[in-house]
Amino acid sequence: MTLPPVLEVRDLSVRHLRRSSLFARASYLLALDAVSFALARGEALAIVGESGSGKSTLVRSLFRLHKPQSGQVLVEGVDLAILSPSELRERRRSMQMVFQDPLASLDPTMTVEQVVAEPLQAQRDAPEKTAAHERVVQQLIAVGLDPALMKRRSQRLSGGQAQRVAIARALIGNPAVLICDEPVSALDASLRAQILDLLVQLRRTRGLSLLFITHDLSAARYVCENTLVLHRGQVVERGTTQEVLTRPQHAFTRQLLESTLTVDPVLARQRRAGLIGDVAAR
């Protein structure tokens, strides 16, 4: 590979100040411990972890909403730490994000059109009104929404619609990387596959790189060819998704696999029996 990765994280460590009471001595919690990975152009990488694994800290650090203790975040080869606030804002544009709770990520006072057009208006070379409107329409169609929804307030959308609007907003500025933070776990099961399908399709048509943060191994497998498992701030496992799922090396990964729910009744009974022995193995 000669091209530099679109996103690279080198030895990133972040600690949080933790104080049990006002007078207690400050102690630090290491939220991320020397995490490194690279995301190549067009790659889809899953970061799998549970609460407290450091997932959210990682996401925030990627946008420099947290200052790391040590380590670097490089976006298209540029270290975020050396940028001025306005340069940082420019640079962030090549990396956009979709959140877990679609309704919370849309301003309740805004219409769909205002939400989707906002990143365009924030650009230094903002397109004029009709051009912007045109791009919003195209973008809504691209994520499978009826442009007639444009004038609707974001709070009157269904969960699935709202998540599509959030994806449209993230993609309107043509970013190189899309970071998805649990994009389907707040949605009903019947909508999950649709949204994941949309992500897979957008990735293919736009050559997008995906960083897919999830607790759900099956969603990771559905979207990403590579997987990295985060546990207590450390990378405990990495490789192709296929490898990680079939030949997990770390005990935590194995536990995660064992715990993952399945609708396959035979497999479900096996896993149940595996955990509590012969009590329920009837």
Binding site: F63, S86, R89, E90, R92, M97, L106, A122, R169
Partner: peptide
């Protein structure tokens, strides 16, 4: 946060 990430000042 979404607006911040989108580059809004």
């Amino acid at each position: 946060v979404a607006a911040d990430i989108a580059g809004v000042s």
